[in-house]
Every structure is written in structure tokens, then in C-alpha cells.
């Protein structure tokens, strides 16, 4: 009963939505072999950056998956956003997003960017979704490198999303 409230009804998808889904699959197929990522810190505590940095370490080794970090937004296919989107970064965020060539993906990383920790106020927008069109949301505070890897592969269509069917309810034997 819980999942049904949020899942779009199968028969009700319009032609535009179907075309958008098809385009998204095509883009994902292209990015599935090689994807360059630009990280954007919009006021995070740097815990997310710590985990993102670990992705390049030998244990996780994201390069084997065809994913690479790039220092320039003009070379990037994906914007990996951390932090609660502080208002002082408005210009920088807009310029970074506009400098990226299309098609581009935006991934919001961590509880701050998902709107969990900071509410919108005079200093922050309270989440990446307020400023950017986010394609994939990666929860966690901070998300572990394994969770980040899964999120990146969901973004390029190489793994299926798991969270949609999770209930966070445990029945029986309460400890």
C-alpha cells in the first residue's frame, strides 16, 4: 500500500513522458561506457567530499567502471552536488551548470543536498533540488563510497534503483 501512492500508474504515461524516458535511456547508454564527473561543493561539511575522494582509491577504483573526475565543468557530463546549496553560491552554481555541455546529469549527494539537514532560510536554499534539475538522489550522511558507486551506476542506467521498493518496516521478531 505504501509504494503504490508514489509510483506513476503504468497506463497514464503521456507521449512526452515516454519520449523523455527513451531519450534518457539513450543518454544513459552513451554515458554507461565513459562518464566525466565534476564535483560541486555548495557548502557541505566536506564529509561527502571525503567519501567521493575515496572512490578513486584502489579499493573502489571507479575508473574501472569508466567513470572519471574532471576539474573543468566544460569537460563534465555529470555534476555531483554536495551541500545544502548556500545562497552565496548562486552565481557559481548557475555558471557551472551552464558551462557543462549537454546532455548532462545532475546527482545530489548526501542528506544536506537532499534537503534533510538544513531548511530553506536566508542563507541556504535547503537542497540541490531548489536550484538544479536533479536526476539521481543519493542519501546518506555521508553516503559511503559503495553507495556513491551504486548511485553513479543508477544514473547511467547500469544498475536498477533499489530504494523504490524498500519499506523500512520489519515484521516479526523484534529484538
Amino acid at each position: 500500500m505504501t509504494a503504490a501512492g508514489f509510483s506513476p500508474q503504468a497506463g497514464e504515461e503521456s507521449a512526452e513522458e515516454l519520449a523523455a524516458a527513451q531519450l534518457r535511456r539513450q543518454v544513459a547508454r552513451q554515458f554507461g561506457r565513459s562518464l566525466h564527473i565534476r564535483t560541486l561543493d555548495t557548502g557541505s561539511c566536506a564529509a561527502c567530499e571525503q567519501e567521493i575522494r575515496l572512490l578513486a582509491a584502489p579499493h573502489y577504483d571507479l575508473h574501472r567502471l569508466g567513470l572519471f573526475f574532471t576539474p573543468a565543468p566544460r569537460h563534465a557530463d555529470m555534476l555531483l552536488v554536495t551541500g545544502p546549496m548556500i545562497r552565496a553560491f548562486d552565481v557559481a552554481v548557475r555558471k557551472t551548470y551552464e558551462a557543462m555541455p549537454g546532455p548532462k546529469l545532475v546527482v545530489a549527494t548526501g542528506a544536506c543536498a537532499l534537503g534533510g539537514v538544513y531548511q530553506p532560510d536566508a542563507f541556504t536554499h535547503g537542497g540541490a533540488g531548489e536550484m538544479l534539475p536533479v536526476d539521481v538522489w543519493i542519501p546518506g550522511c555521508p553516503p559511503s563510497p559503495l553507495a556513491l558507486l551504486q548511485g553513479l551506476l543508477v544514473a547511467v542506467g547500469r544498475l536498477a534503483e533499489k530504494s523504490r521498493t524498500m519499506t523500512f518496516v520489519q515484521n516479526g521478531n523484534p529484538r
Partner: peptide, 10 residues
Amino acid sequence: EFELAATRRE
């Protein structure tokens, strides 16, 4: 559960 990535916030 830690592999929580979602394509929609909802």
C-alpha cells in the same frame, strides 16, 4: 540498506 540511490525524490 545503504544502496539507496533514487531517480525521484518521492
